[in-house]
Design a protein around this nucleic acid. Structure first.
Lengths: 138, 138
DNA sequence: ATCGTAATTGCACCTGGTTGTAATTATAAT
DNA sequence: ATTATAATTACAACCAGGTGCAATTACGAT
């Protein structure tokens, strides 16, 4: 796991708690909410305090070992994958589709041209309806 | 104020608290965070409970009298204006620029075509740097 | 204008997330 | 292997936001 190495190289101590939190986020393909992370961590290692988990998540994000994204009014965490940084999450079935990094390029360009505004589109999570759920609903 | 009429037509009671909250959001051109709304409300009418304010904001949003948007990890409220539903908020100076409704049309289209996914792009608030702040920073 | 009633408010309490701090522990130096 | 120490943890206390409920109030009917 290259993240652990990166993490230690940046001068952070690798405690069992931190290792566990990293493992959980990396082993899980789905995007985890904070609550789910807390549940998983405390299931495997009872007694770990919520403040430790919150602080660790913040630190892991700063260290670049995990990505934090807003999804509606919640935050979800996922491991950083190269190449595709946006996500489409279905509000019905919950599945997550990775999508291309430069999908927002046209928007970025036109906003830059029209308003002189520079937007930072980094690993955006968009909510909506996937193909199957759209079919079922209509 | 047409909103008050709309609000009453939907069968909601117009209490002084609700009137005040509407006034504050409508009088204020800037986008207000919840904290600022609470501060303003309690300045003009001490004793109004925070739970009343939260519930009123939720109700006003459902009634379509105000718009609630996510800006980073906060929510901001603004009155519904026709025609332009997206906002560019500068993370440096805080100014807000209205921007065109169909700015996301290309993205919406390409995601629909490539992934069969349907995204709901309604009054999005995007954070970034405005023209002046970019000039000053660089 | 008064009244009846359903909606609304304020309160108490709860949960998720954050922060200061003393006790603990991972790691580097010996 | 021991030790020194700076980082990290658990805990308590705190704040924003939300919920159930009894007391209050807006508003239609009289």
């Amino acid at each position: 796991m290259s993240c652990v190495v990166t993490f230690k190289e940046k001068g952070f101590k690798l405690t069992p708690q931190r290792k566990l939190i990293m493992d959980i986020i990396h082993d899980n393909e789905a995007h985890l909410t904070t609550e789910k992370i807390i549940t998983h961590v405390q299931a495997r290692m009872p007694g770990v305090h919520k403040s430790t988990i919150y602080r660790t998540l913040e630190l892991l994000e700063k260290a670049g070992c995990v990505y934090k994204s807003a999804l509606g009014d919640k935050f979800i965490y996922h491991h950083p994958e190269e190449g595709h940084h946006h996500h489409l999450v279905c509000r019905k079935c919950g599945q997550s589709i990775d999508c291309d990094e430069d999908i927002f390029a046209p928007v970025e360009r036109s906003i830059g041209e029209e308003y002189g505004f520079h937007i930072d589109f980094k690993h955006i999570v968009m909510s909506g309806l996937c193909k199957e759920c759209r079919r079922k609903t209509s």
